[in-house]
Amino acid sequence: MNLIHKLMKTPEGAVGFIILAIMIGIAIMASTISPGDPLRIAGRALVAPFTDPALPLGTDRLGRDVAAGIVHGARTSLLVGAAAALAAIVLGLLVGLVAGFCSGIVDEVLMRVVDAFQIVPGFLLALAFVSVMGASLPVVVLAITLGAWADPARLTRAQVLSLRERDYVAAAKVIGMHPAEIAVRQILPQALPPVLAISATLVAAAILTEAALSFLGLGDPNSVTWGSMIAEGRNVLRSSPWLSILPGLALIITVVGVYLLSEGLAKALAGDGPAMQGKLRNGAAP
């Protein structure tokens, strides 16, 4: 598995990987870098950044440490983003695999459900879901997942439809392999690469959706998030713009990092995915 090696060879992949590695490092070490509750009052209100060495990025209207908020916010953003993207991919893979493999009425029903989720804007769906269920991290993750699983489901189904006509699947049937084993062991691993290639995009979208929900006050009130920090700073945008700008920058850097990584990943996967196997199959390779 030299995917990471290949990834680092593409400039996008390398930069994205480094940005994300730093962000993940900050998220994991959050309690060490800035111990204690990030929501506690740390000093005077509205200290400007770079004026007090104890509060490097200043404080907000209630005297809470902005640096601590950004560090702990990284944890929430990445956790929610990764969890929602993972849930969306697992659900999408499952639905796509069953729809593509079973075909017929099962396929029809599942794909109409996918259609239903795809025509509702993901953000509105998440908004409605959180409003009804109440704001907490698991609910936010679930809400984002609901709006994001349809794409991987469609992609998986398309892959499965082309893979199941291949001779090696017929060969597996001929030796008497159980359909479930054919689906999971023979087809799924081959359907995976293109779905994984869009996973980073899903993470980025999930991070942004979470920030937007928090901005609207629908995030988990007990955890710091970049979205809620931006919303909080909005009230004093004229006098203290850094309160919105700093978490906004953190958000942008993270999302750009994820996008760059996804670009690099797509390039690295294009080198040895099914495309390459296709070349070998047709004997075009020298």
């Binding site: 001779d167 017929a170 060969a171 049937k173 001929v174 030796i175 159980h178 199959r281």
Partner: peptide
């Protein structure tokens, strides 16, 4: 059917395509 399938086997024309790509 799956149990009896072992009694009739097949050799495919596409020599490479008849095997899982990573088998």
């Amino acid at each position: 059917l799956r149990h009896r399938r072992g009694r009739i086997q097949m050799v495919f024309q596409d020599i490479l395509g008849a095997f899982h790509p990573s088998a």
